[in-house]
Amino acid sequence: MPLFSVIIPAYNAERYLDECLNSVRGQTFHDFELVKVNMHE
């Protein structure tokens, strides 16, 4: 079980999402889960 969760809400974030996800994945600490939530109107 991961130590903590990183939750990324995404609304109209297509142009920034890759950079954001790569930044989180590039951290030196790896005991986490990554949750991306696609927000709709």
Rank of each mutant, 00 (worst) to 15 (best):
M1I: 03
M1N: 04
M1Q: 01
M1H: 03
P2N: 05
P2T: 05
P2F: 10
L3Y: 08
S5D: 15
S5Y: 07
S5H: 09
S5W: 02
S5K: 14
S5V: 00
S5T: 12
V6H: 07
I7P: 01
I7V: 15
I7W: 02
I7K: 13
I7M: 08
I7L: 15
I8P: 01
I8M: 03
I8F: 03
P9F: 10
P9H: 09
P9N: 07
P9A: 12
A10I: 03
A10S: 15
A10M: 09
Y11K: 13
Y11I: 01
N12I: 01
N12P: 00
N12R: 15
N12C: 07
N12T: 00
N12S: 13
N12M: 15
N12G: 11
N12E: 14
A13H: 06
A13F: 14
A13N: 12
A13M: 15
A13S: 14
E14K: 13
E14T: 06
E14F: 00
R15A: 12
R15Y: 10
R15V: 11
Y16G: 02
Y16L: 08
L17E: 12
L17D: 09
L17I: 15
D18R: 12
E19N: 14
E19Q: 12
E19Y: 08
C20F: 09
C20P: 02
C20N: 01
L21P: 01
L21S: 03
L21K: 09
N22T: 11
N22A: 11
S23K: 09
S23E: 12
V24Y: 06
V24H: 06
V24W: 07
V24C: 07
R25Y: 09
R25Q: 10
R25F: 09
G26F: 07
G26S: 13
G26H: 03
G26P: 05
Q27M: 15
Q27K: 11
T28H: 10
T28F: 04
F29V: 09
F29Q: 10
F29K: 09
F29Y: 12
F29E: 12
H30A: 08
H30P: 00
H30N: 12
H30E: 08
D31P: 01
D31M: 02
D31R: 06
D31S: 02
D31N: 14
F32Y: 13
F32S: 06
F32K: 02
F32E: 02
F32N: 06
F32Q: 06
F32R: 07
F32M: 05
E33Y: 01
E33I: 02
L34S: 04
V35G: 00
V35I: 14
K36H: 04
K36T: 15
K36Y: 02
V37A: 11
V37I: 15
V37R: 11
V37C: 09
V37Q: 11
V37L: 15
N38V: 08
N38S: 10
N38W: 01
N38F: 08
M39F: 10
M39L: 14
M39Y: 05
M39A: 11
M39I: 15
H40L: 06
H40Y: 08
E41L: 12
E41K: 10
